[in-house]
């Protein structure tokens, strides 16, 4: 169908990916934001968001997904997630006298803005976990490419 060699998988996979990618991201964000009210939280939500990007990598190839979030950006976002958690801890230490003291108003239970800093905390964990998984996958994809090119050159020599 296509004349030039295209990266990634077939047209079917790409179409399905286009369809479900938005749902995955929205559901991941929901799991993160409602982590303190319903089951879930930063970790599972972060994994879902990372999986959305991994799906794009599988369907379209590494180059496309790296134009969205490059390895360096992902790494810095990952570090910022960790830094936010630490800063929350330090603010708690300053205000309440204990590390990670919940210094924000608690609000009414079962509303979105309740439970103090937990929502910020979940967002930070989402950044940390999601970006870490994404970078690990990128690194594995690079490794894969190195191995395959090495095999190809070997075959060429033969």
């Amino acid at each position: 169908m296509k004349k030039e060699k295209q990266s990634g998988m077939t047209f079917i996979v790409k179409t399905i990916t286009n369809l479900i990618i938005g749902f995955m991201l929205v559901f991941g964000a929901y799991i993160v934001l409602y982590g303190h009210i319903t089951p879930g939280g930063g970790f599972p939500g972060g994994v879902m968001i990372a999986l959305a990007y991994i799906l794009v990598t599988l369907a379209y190839g590494r180059r496309v997904v790296e134009s969205m979030i490059s390895g360096v950006t992902g790494s810095i976002a990952d570090d910022i997630g960790a830094l936010v958690i630490l800063i929350l801890g330090f603010i708690g230490l300053y205000i309440g006298g204990t590390f990670l003291f919940n210094f924000l108003p608690k609000g009414t239970p079962f509303k979105l803005f309740s439970a103090g800093y937990i929502i910020i905390y979940n967002l930070a964990i989402m950044l940390k976990v999601g970006m870490s998984l994404y970078i690990v996958f990128l690194a594995l994809a690079i490794l894969q490419r190195v191995v395959t090119t090495r095999d190809e050159t070997k075959e060429d020599k033969k």
Binding site: D79, L83, L86, F90, L93, G97, F99
Partner: peptide, 21 residues
């Protein structure tokens, strides 16, 4: 005085992350 204890772990981790950035 007891507020200083978590710093033994928090400061190295914070520094490690800052070094990464």
């Amino acid at each position: 005085m007891n507020t200083l204890l978590p710093l033994f772990t928090a400061i190295p981790i914070c520094s490690a992350v800052l070094i990464l950035i």
